[in-house]
């Protein structure tokens, strides 16, 4: 009796350890296949940022190559926060977080693909990006929080070009900001056998940076998650703690 109970506990522990070793949540309901589609152009499904960091590190781990103005604005924001009076960005007002900042949120996102559009529906403040797959930027781009995004496939990489982003959005949560000349190029592709995607983002804005710079985010395939309702305007019932969304 005692031995068989011990066996059951050991077996359960081994299963749990095995799943944890593979990075999967134990005994989770799977809403989608355990691995994303084998088609590299099929990004549909739910993904979740790995390694959330409110300060976006460049790929070489250094601060972005600021112009004098960029550096000044960055320092102003860091000092304001240290003094207990942080400056607000678009997300503080429940406005859309902007591109590329919304891609660096500790909440899941779901990708939808139609022939015309790639749609990224974010849990955070139900931000939604529409990436136009069949056209170029218009000659006159109307400024919006998310900007005008156009996408094309280069091999197995989805390349997204974005301009026209409202300068009320920031690039990270600490104080890297941009102006109306912001231009980002994102290169999204599946990695790790479809268990993750990476987004390599090149940021260009001559008013704030001396040269283009790059950061890289990765997102895990999460067949065990659905996008929850997040309504910023009623305040946050579900704030992340230490980068982890609670109360799910």
């Amino acid at each position: 009796m005692a031995a068989s109970r011990a066996a059951r506990i050991s077996a359960a522990l081994a299963v749990t350890l095995g799943m944890l070793a593979a990075g999967a949540a134990p005994a989770a309901t799977l809403y989608r296949p355990a691995v994303s589609s084998a088609d590299p152009h099929d990004l549909s499904g739910v993904w979740f940022l790995l390694h959330y960091n409110r300060v976006i590190p460049t790929v070489d781990g250094t601060p972005p190559p600021f112009t004098e103005r960029g550096k000044l604005e960055w320092a102003r924001r860091i000092m304001a926060e240290a003094n207990g009076a942080p400056m607000s960005d678009a997300s503080t007002h429940c406005w859309p977080h902007g591109t590329p900042r919304v891609m660096n949120s500790p909440y899941p996102l779901q990708i939808f693909q139609t022939p015309q559009q790639t749609v990224i529906a974010h849990e955070v403040a139900h931000n939604t990006r529409y990436i136009h797959m069949q056209r170029a930027h218009p000659a006159e781009v109307k400024t919006s929080f998310m900007g005008d995004s156009v996408g094309r496939w280069e091999g197995d990489t989805l390349v997204i070009d974005t301009v026209g982003v409202d300068p009320r959005t920031w690039i990270d949560e600490q104080g890297v900001i941009h102006g109306p000349k912001l231009h980002t190029v994102e290169r999204i592709r599946k990695i790790d056998g479809g268990k993750a995607i990476e987004d390599v983002v090149t940021v260009e804005d001559p008013d704030f940076f001396t040269k283009p710079w790059t950061f890289r985010d990765t997102y895990a395939w999460r067949p065990d998650l659905r996008i929850a309702e997040y309504v910023c305007e009623e305040n946050n019932r579900n704030a992340p703690q230490d980068g982890v969304t609670v109360a799910r």
Partner: peptide, 10 residues
Amino acid sequence: AALAALGLAL
């Protein structure tokens, strides 16, 4: 039993 289960999980 634990090793068998671990094998299955892997």
